[in-house]
């Protein structure tokens, strides 16, 4: 194993702050990388800093509510914590809102939408569900209060996993390009404008320090940039284990491992395994950074799977650090 120094992981704080200031942020990543937890942390952090934040759950209904320890999100934004609104998005719910908006009257909605044939037809239109959900997100991003100021300063979308996220985000462009002239096409064009606007929208790409998740992140990054034409915000590496053995420790560990004292096998095996994990982790981090090019933020491995507000604070701490807010904190790679 080469004794390369650990990567310098600190991102440029200005770049991180810029990404976190975009009013429309989408959290992307493959299944199981921790999108819901990160989305909740992003939302909580911004709300604590006085922003009016709407967190839209497309991915795992009620997951954010569970993490934030608040009542499950309704279909309409509800302020669940100070400055933090939560809203669950389902294809049916979004479709209903869209229909009511277009048809104006509830009575007409009932006649049309309670119709068995129509329910069926709507289900068959490809990506219509995703499209109306995106429409709802867009609507809230543009929503104004009576004084003309935006209702929300920040809209965060906890997007579905890889493939579905792309269907979801490219829904606007797909509809704009494939559907014949009509009300849907017009709306789709305005949604696509928001998604493609680098000053307003960005995606955060999440991954884990493992081979396959980083490879998938590479594909997802290319698709989000080229197919969805969205701009990259943060590259987020989740569950980055703190180093137990520093580079300086390694010669000592190796010396003892080389002695092969049978009674010390449990110790040398664990230490050698840990060092291999460090090396692999650094390699994945390096590859992930090459892929995403943007500012890389590493999140710590959380002590429990059952994430609550306390664990969110650990992630918020990592974000603060990446923004240069608390530089006095020791970095993940600090050697003891």
């Amino acid at each position: 194993m080469n004794a390369a120094a650990p990567l310098s992981l600190a991102p440029d704080p200005d770049q991180v702050r810029t990404a976190l200031d975009r009013p429309f942020q989408v959290v992307l990543g493959k299944g199981g990388v921790g999108r819901s937890v990160f989305s909740a942390a992003l939302a909580l952090r911004a709300s604590q800093r006085g922003k009016r934040v709407l967190l839209l759950e497309v991915n795992a209904p009620d997951e954010a509510a569970r993490i934030l320890q608040v009542a499950p999100a309704p279909d309409d934004p509800r302020e669940v914590l100070n400055n933090l609104w939560l809203c669950r998005m389902t294809p049916t719910g979004a479709m209903r809102e869209y229909a009511l908006l277009v048809l104006k009257f509830k009575a007409i909605y009932h006649i049309v939408f309670e119709n068995r044939l129509v329910k069926y037809l709507l289900r068959s239109i490809p990506s219509l569900g995703e499209f109306t959900m995106l429409g709802k997100a867009w609507y809230h991003a543009e929503e104004r209060r009576s004084d003309g100021s935006p209702r929300f300063d920040l809209v965060i979308i906890d997007a579905p996993a890889t493939g579905h996220a792309l269907t979801f985000l490219s829904g606007a462009r797909a509809v704009a390009d494939t559907v014949p002239v009509g009300p849907m096409k017009a709306a789709a064009e305005r949604m696509a404008e928001l998604i493609e606007d680098p000053r307003r929208a960005c995606f955060h790409l999440m991954s884990l320090p493992e081979e396959m998740p980083v490879s998938e992140a590479r594909d997802l990054f290319a698709a989000a940039r080229d197919r969805v034409r969205m701009h990259a915000g943060l590259a987020v590496m989740n569950r980055v284990r703190a180093r137990r053995f520093s580079v300086q420790d390694e010669p000592i560990v190796r010396a003892l491992a080389a002695e092969a004292e049978p009674a010390l096998l449990p110790y040398t095996e664990v230490a050698v395994r840990e060092m291999k994990r460090h090396a692999a982790r650094d390699a994945h981090l390096g590859r992930f950074r090459e892929v995403t090019m943007g500012p890389l933020v590493c999140l710590p491995e959380l002590p429990t799977e059952d994430v609550g507000p306390e664990e969110l604070e650990l992630i918020i701490g990592a974000l603060d650090e990446a923004c240069g807010v608390r530089p006095e904190l020791e970095t993940l790679d600090a050697t003891a």
Binding site: L103, L122, P183
Partner: peptide
């Protein structure tokens, strides 16, 4: 329904 999706769709 056509008002929503456009009849062509």
């Amino acid at each position: 329904l056509g008002r929503l999706t456009g009849t062509a769709t």
